[in-house]
Design a protein around this nucleic acid. Structure first.
Lengths: 207, 207
DNA sequence: TATAGCATGTAATTAGTTACATGATTAA
DNA sequence: TTAATCATGTAACTAATTACATGCTATA
């Protein structure tokens, strides 16, 4: 059990502690905050949140506030001293932060040699579209909320969102560029066999 | 069991089938190829590869070649017709490709409000360093191999690698930029309280 | 002759998703 | 009164890592 020693926080425990400290109080609230603010770079589902909350309580990093007035069944949590400390330890541990990236579209591109140029182009288009759709969603739903909340929550959440937007812009741009290159090659190929150039301006070798 | 129906390929099955088709033959070879070429956007460990290989064999998507001459214990696999078909189906399914991104450094930035400006700056530096280190590794170890292999493997693997490099460059740039902004603010703060600007040139609201 | 690399595998554990089940409260 | 949202939870499953155990082969 990963919290027996209390010195290592599970991935999900980190978000939970952080969000609790930042103002959330219930499992439900943690989940909605994740959805609205961190899901791009850090997700969590109910199936993790509620069990982890009780593990954290068992480890003494979190305590449940007495239910008080509300008739509705609802458990509000708060960090304990130890929880506060564990969170701060993680935030300042100085260990190189891990990041993980998994991209099915890129995997399909990697295997492009098994497809026709037209099929590759279809996939590239789908990747570009995905990036653009995510970007549109970010701008429409997340960005306004971040601007609005910046006063109480500080600048950092918006900064993280800015990163997300910049990343998706990069992604959309990259795929758009590749798309144009492949389209041009398809047109050339139809008109007659000429020299094709790689997407970065470097000469390409055809398979 | 996810391969009972044979119409849905597990994430790991997709890389395996693809790499097998692209020339790999043993579990070991799949693993090393993943390490050298796809680990940035798609990873796999022995703990998945060997069991999955046997599941795929059970499902008839893959067959083991007779061991033949070698004294060394070694199982070479090859795609069957059905495997070929399943792979092609996945590659052309047209479903929006999923991508997943998890970034601990970004999570720490998100929680920056719980830290001092100097501590935030430390974390930003660590993220920037990580991106730069990965980038250096890509350029030194992966890029030359991709160039060398481009003739037989075609252009697409190098294209995927190019994406990886471009992405890491974006990341390093973004963090470098933020780092400079935060450094400037720290200097200003030491000299006397003046107006601080956000990293994107937009006015920031201080927490 | 010893070390690096080739080669295969498993057990234990940790992480995480999905789908389901339940019920209260609030605003239209 | 009905739909949306608040709220909590579990069971089954899927995914993946880590650490270990084993042994061969080529080369320095």
């Amino acid at each position: 059990m990963h919290l027996g020693d209390m010195s290592t926080l599970s991935p999900t425990a980190r978000v939970i502690l952080g969000l609790l400290r930042a103002g959330a109080s219930t499992g439900y609230e943690i989940k909605t905050t994740v959805e609205q603010a961190t899901r791009f770079f850090w997700g969590a589902s109910y199936g993790q949140i509620y069990p982890e909350l009780r593990r954290l309580q068992g480890a003494g990093l979190v305590e449940a506030l007495p239910d008080a007035e509300t008739a509705r069944r609802k458990v509000a949590y708060r960090l304990t001293e130890a929880g506060e400390q564990a969170l701060h330890e993680w935030l300042t541990s100085g260990e190189p932060p891990e990041f993980q990236y998994r991209d099915e579209g890129l995997l399909k591109l990697f295997f492009g040699g098994l497809l026709s140029p037209a099929e590759v182009l279809d996939n590239v288009r789908a990747s570009r579209r995905e990036a653009e759709a995510d970007l549109a969603f970010f701008r429409a739903n997340l960005a306004p909320r971040a601007r609005a909340g910046a006063a109480e929550e500080g600048r950092y959440p918006s900064l993280a969102l800015e990163y997300g937007i910049a990343f998706l812009e990069f992604m959309a741009r990259w795929y758009r560029r590749l798309e144009r290159t492949l389209e041009a090659e398809a047109a050339e190929g139809a008109a007659g066999p000429e020299r094709a150039e790689g997407v970065s301006g470097e000469p390409s070798r055809d398979a």
